[in-house]
């Protein structure tokens, strides 16, 4: 016996259509965007990274892991190590300098000036990062503003331009405002009644800070640190303009493989995959341990 045709159910059909349509309309544009500009290019990079000795316009020798093996040479491992050192170092500096500022802004600054002070702090972000790096080059060069001030004060002049020191200064300067913004958002939500309770129960101010304030803002600290770490790991402008020949990092090395004289797209792609992997790991940590709300609020 054949089943009887089911009666038409216009309402249910419309509902089914809508269930299908809703997510498509909402996610479609961003989805297409991500697919075309993130997923496909990444797959393309992955493919190119698996072709050793690739030269544009010339036949390639097929797939292989040669580009990844090349990264294992000591000189390139040192480049990766240097990039990690820049990222970790400037993250720690940003945290050490940013936390007191954010603490003061969120908890101690006069209420009516608070927003203005915050805007003042993030004002440098409104100018191009390239210009700011050039400004630092002018400040740090041997005859620059810094040495003029140091020698006026009777201190020894420093030749920091084109050294890793200049890179640390530039990176810390560039990303400090991000750290402060995230920590501020986290500290602003601090439940000060807990601090009062701790004080009532005999905690010293330093015990209160380490056992109440810090644990409560730990997700914000993790979010700020990971954001700064991710940004500095892949930064190109500051190491290029301030580091000179002394501070080849992974993003400069990648740039040189694509637009430099060697045009080793395969090796550059393999390096890019390593960077993508490192950043993805950091983002996974951020999602796992970070304070997501403080990121989305800023």
């Amino acid at each position: 016996m054949t089943p009887a045709p089911s009666p038409p159910r216009p309402w249910a059909d419309r509902f089914a259509t809508r269930r299908w349509l809703g997510p498509v309309v909402l996610l479609g544009p961003a989805g297409v965007w991500l697919l075309l500009l993130l997923v496909l290019p990444t797959l393309l990079i992955l493919e190119i990274s698996l072709v050793p000795g690739l030269r544009l316009g010339q036949p390639s020798g097929g797939y292989g892991l040669g580009n990844y093996l090349q990264i294992l040479q000591p000189v390139y491992l040192r480049v990766i190590g240097r990039s990690l050192a820049f990222a970790v170092g400037s993250t720690v500096l940003c945290l050490l300098m940013g936390f007191p500022v954010a603490y003061w802004l969120a908890l101690m600054s006069p209420q009516r000036w608070r927003n203005l002070l915050l805007v003042g702090f993030i004002l440098p972000l409104w100018t191009s990062s390239l210009l700011r790096a050039y400004a630092w080059a002018a400040i740090l060069r041997p005859s620059g503003v810094l040495n003029t001030m140091l020698t006026t004060l009777g201190l020894p002049a420093q030749n920091w331009l084109n050294t890793p020191t200049a890179v640390f200064i530039g990176l810390t300067y560039s990303f400090l405002p991000y750290m402060v913004l995230i920590l501020y958002a986290s500290l602003e939500k601090l439940d000060t009644r807990l601090l009062e309770a701790a004080a009532d129960l005999g905690a010293t101010p330093s015990q209160g800070f380490w056992q109440v304030t810090v644990p409560q803002t730990l997700p914000g600290i993790a979010a700020g640190c990971l954001l700064v770490f991710i940004s500095t790991l892949g930064d190109f402008v500051v190491p290029t303009l301030l580091g000179g020949a002394s501070s080849m990092n992974i993003s400069r090395l990648i740039y040189n493989q694509f637009l430099g004289p060697t045009r080793a797209w395969g090796f550059g792609s393999a390096l890019s995959m390593v960077l993508i992997l490192a950043v993805s790991l950091a983002i996974a940590l951020l999602l796992r341990y970070g304070d997501k709300s403080s990121v989305s609020e800023t």
């Binding site: 000795g53 000189v75 390139y76 090395l253 040189n256 060697t262 080793a264 090796f267």
Partner: peptide, 14 residues
């Protein structure tokens, strides 16, 4: 060319 490429990348990365 390959040798030039390789050594140039090394010397600028050192």
């Amino acid at each position: 060319t390959d040798l030039f490429d390789q050594l140039w990348t090394k010397v600028t990365s050192a």
